[in-house]
Every structure is written in C-alpha cells, then in structure tokens.
C-alpha cells in the first residue's frame, strides 16, 4: 500500500515535470512568435557577423589544404600541418617570431601609464584644470595611424626633423636616420603608441576612481595616512578589478601586433627588426599570393593569442576572482 502510494506520487511528479517542460516549450514558442520583430532586428548584425567573421573562419581550413582557386576550398588537397612546418623551417622564422614577441612584450610597459595618469588626474581638485588635461591627452587617440607615422617620419627626419635638431642642441649628432635604424624601431613603435593612447586609456580608470568610497579616504586621513599611502592602500585596491580585466584583454592580444602601424613604419633598412608575423602574412598572402601558407601562419598566431587569453583569464580568476567570463 505504501509502495503504491509512492509509485503514484513518483508518477505524478514525472507527469508534472513533463507538463512543465511542455508548458515551458510552448511559452518559448509563444515568446518567439510574439517577438518575431526583434529577430528581424538581429538579422542584419547576425548576417554581418556570419559573412565577415564566421565565413572566414570556415575558410580557415585552407591552412591545412593546398588551396588552388580553380579547385575551390573543398576540392583542394588536404596537406595537414605542412604549411606550419614550412613556416617554422624558413630561415626567417626565428627572426619574425622574436620580433613579434619582442614588440609585444615591450608594448606591455605601456599598460601602467594610463593608470598613473588617472591617479594623478584624480588628485587634481580644480575641475577646469582637470578637464583641460583630459581634453589634451585624449586628442592623439583621434589621429589616424597614417598621420601618426607621417608625423614620426617628419619629426625624426635626418634632414630637417626637430628631434635631430634637439639632439644637436645637446651636442649629439644631427643626422641620425631614426626611422631607418633597426635598433630604434621597437622604441619608436612603443613610445609613439604610449603618446597616442595613454590619455584615452585613462578614461576607464578615471571612471573607476570616481566610484571609490570617500569615507575610506576620510578615515585614512584621520589616521594620518598621506596621499601616496591612500592611493596605494585605497585607490589601487578599489580599481583592481578594472585593472585586471584590462590586463587580461591586453594579454589576449600578446602576439597581436597590429600590422597597420608596423607596416607603415617598415622600410628596407629596419626590416630585420620590424618584420612581424602579421606583416609577413600580408606579404606572403596578398603580394606573393601564397594563400594557404599565409593563412596557416595567421592561424598559428591566432591560436597562440587565444591560448594566452585563456590562460590569463584562468589565472586572474584563481588569483583575484575577477575574469572575463
């Protein structure tokens, strides 16, 4: 008798679950029908992403094939990892790999600059002065890469550049061809990047700093903490989650040296330190038409990026509890 009751109860429960499922499904269906217009809203963006992002991802398989345009993607022969090993066997591989890594790692020093700027800006009490500094430092962000590199080559020109002129004032040589020197390339690249993006990068930290609890500052002040101590023990810990998120994003592009600026700054004299994976991909692929080979190199680079991003995200999650996903 007891058993029977339990059986009935279990049966009832199962029925209930099934009914709930059906109800939920029909509710979903109803919602979808009611909101059909919203799906239309999503359609153009979804098409765009499909064509410009997922289409190429599908085409990425040519990295493992011997792509010939006449055969199409599917008709081309599968060659496995041939292209990646070809790339690793080229004499220039280590040079390109090292350059990419060197410029990427060197670029990381730009990371703290926006934070320092934000902390200093936060210290300015005069609103108009703060606004002025912000307006000025955001400005270079809006200059195009072409113009930035154009300005660099004008200022650093060995014939009439102001940098050489300044060097002359301090007794240095006045005819250094900075843009043509392989040993200066990474410095020019990284420091002009800091010049261009430091102010813009600080916005996010300035915003985070305005959310810091003022009572903490008041309490610390009563306890006799000076400004530097308060920044170190209150401000920085408060904006740490923001800092970590930005750092993860930054690490995710560790090998992603953009080709735009590097390509513009390249010339035959500095090529030994300015050839990076992305510019090599461009040259092999679009100038020499070696599609499969260069797609494979691009993939090699992307995969490294993606792995670093995942590791950085995991580590950040474990160490500090903040992560991207």
């Amino acid at each position: 008798m007891r058993n029977g009751r339990r059986g009935r109860r279990v049966k009832g429960f199962v029925n209930q679950q099934a009914a709930q499922k059906i109800r939920k499904r029909s509710k979903t269906w109803k919602l979808m029908k009611k909101n059909w217009l919203l799906y239309m809203f999503l359609l153009p963006a979804a098409l765009y992403i499909a064509i410009f992002h997922y289409g190429p991802m599908y085409g990425l398989q040519i990295a493992f094939r011997d792509y010939k345009a006449v055969n199409g993607i599917w008709g081309s022969k599968w060659v496995g990892l041939k292209w990646i090993t070809t790339f690793m066997d080229t004499p220039r591989f280590w040079m390109i790999f090292k350059n990419t890594l060197k410029i990427s790692l060197y670029s990381l020093i730009s990371f703290p600059f926006p934070i320092i700027l934000a902390v200093f800006l936060n210290n300015v009490r005069n609103v108009r002065r703060k606004k002025f500094v912000q307006t000025v430092t955001y400005m270079p962000h809006f200059i195009s890469t072409v113009v930035l590199v154009g300005m660099l080559s004008l200022f650093l020109s060995p014939r009439n550049g102001i940098v050489n002129m300044l060097a002359g004032l301090f007794g240095g040589p006045t005819d250094t061809y900075f843009m043509g020197r392989a040993d200066y390339f990474s410095h020019i690249y990284v420091w002009s990047g800091i010049w261009q993006s430091m102010g813009w990068g600080s916005i996010i930290y300035v915003a985070a700093l305005t959310g810091v609890d003022q009572e903490l500052h008041d309490a610390a002040q009563v306890d006799g903490a000076n400004k530097l101590q308060r920044i170190w023990h209150i401000d920085i810990p408060s904006i740490l989650p923001t800092i970590i998120i930005m750092l993860i994003l930054r690490l995710g592009s560790i090998m992603g040296v953009g080709y735009e600026k590097v390509y513009l700054m390249q010339n035959s004299l500095n090529i030994t330190s300015s050839e990076v994976i992305s510019t090599y991909v461009y040259k092999m692929g679009l100038q020499d038409q070696r599609f499969s080979y260069s797609a494979a190199i691009g993939l090699f680079n992307n995969v490294i990026n993606f792995i670093v991003l995942i590791i950085a995200n995991k580590t950040a999650d474990k160490v500090s509890g903040s992560s991207l996903w």
Partner: peptide, 28 residues
C-alpha cells in the same frame, strides 16, 4: 524575453577573440 539571444551573443563575442585572419577574409 528573447529565446536564443544568449547563444547568439556568445557567438558574437567569440569573434572578438578569434577570427579567420587576413587571407580567409580576403578570399571570402
């Protein structure tokens, strides 16, 4: 209240971190 939009968003976000790259895009 839009079923399926969560998955679609994830598909969108994935493209921020991974892509086909220059050559497959060019061929496309």
């Amino acid at each position: 209240d839009l079923p399926g939009s969560g998955i679609l968003m994830k598909l969108f976000i994935f493209t921020m971190y991974f892509g086909g790259g220059l050559i497959p895009t060019y061929l496309m």
